[in-house]
Computed example of a mutant assay.
Amino acid sequence: MMSVLAEGWVWWVGALAIGVPLVLVVLTEIIGALRRRRSPAVRPLLLLRNAVVPVAALVVLLAFATRSDQDLVWVRIVGTVLGFLLILLVLSGVNVALFSTAREGTWRERVPTIFVEIVRLLLVVVGLAVL
């Protein structure tokens, strides 16, 4: 029994089995509270809860389940999807911080939404090219 606990993967599996559901429940409660306040921060948190956390857990599971010297394609594919989702999450958070909470009369309030979306698209394309 002690030899099984001495292996590192047991602790990672335990952390995933307890940590991921706990993070999802906490995020759900935070999202519910922000929805009642009609906060614009709900969209990035929904992306975090519904996509980023599950894909990150999948990356960790795949990385530990397929530990070998071979270059495994599935781990890289899911890792790339996680990178793309993280880019979307960061850009969504920046959008909320800069433009959704802009006070009336400021330059951030006057910027047309189409320009914000075009810059966001360009940043996603550059981020994917880097990935």
Results as ranks from 00 to 15, higher is better:
1 M>C: 11
1 M>K: 09
2 M>W: 14
4 V>M: 15
8 G>I: 04
10 V>Y: 13
12 W>F: 15
12 W>L: 13
12 W>N: 11
13 V>H: 04
14 G>T: 08
16 L>H: 03
16 L>W: 02
17 A>W: 04
17 A>R: 10
22 L>F: 10
22 L>I: 08
25 V>C: 06
25 V>F: 15
25 V>R: 11
27 L>T: 08
27 L>S: 05
27 L>I: 07
27 L>V: 05
28 T>E: 13
30 I>Q: 05
31 I>L: 06
34 L>T: 06
35 R>T: 09
40 P>G: 05
41 A>D: 05
41 A>T: 11
41 A>F: 08
42 V>C: 01
43 R>E: 13
44 P>G: 00
45 L>K: 00
48 L>P: 00
50 N>F: 05
55 V>G: 01
58 L>S: 07
59 V>A: 01
62 L>W: 01
64 F>L: 07
69 D>G: 14
70 Q>D: 13
72 L>S: 03
74 W>M: 10
75 V>L: 11
75 V>M: 07
77 I>M: 10
78 V>P: 00
82 L>K: 00
83 G>T: 14
84 F>P: 01
87 I>Q: 05
91 L>N: 04
92 S>M: 11
94 V>E: 07
96 V>I: 05
98 L>F: 14
101 T>N: 13
102 A>M: 11
102 A>Q: 03
103 R>G: 13
105 G>S: 05
106 T>G: 02
109 E>Y: 03
113 T>A: 14
115 F>T: 10
123 L>K: 00
124 V>H: 06
126 V>T: 12
129 A>V: 14
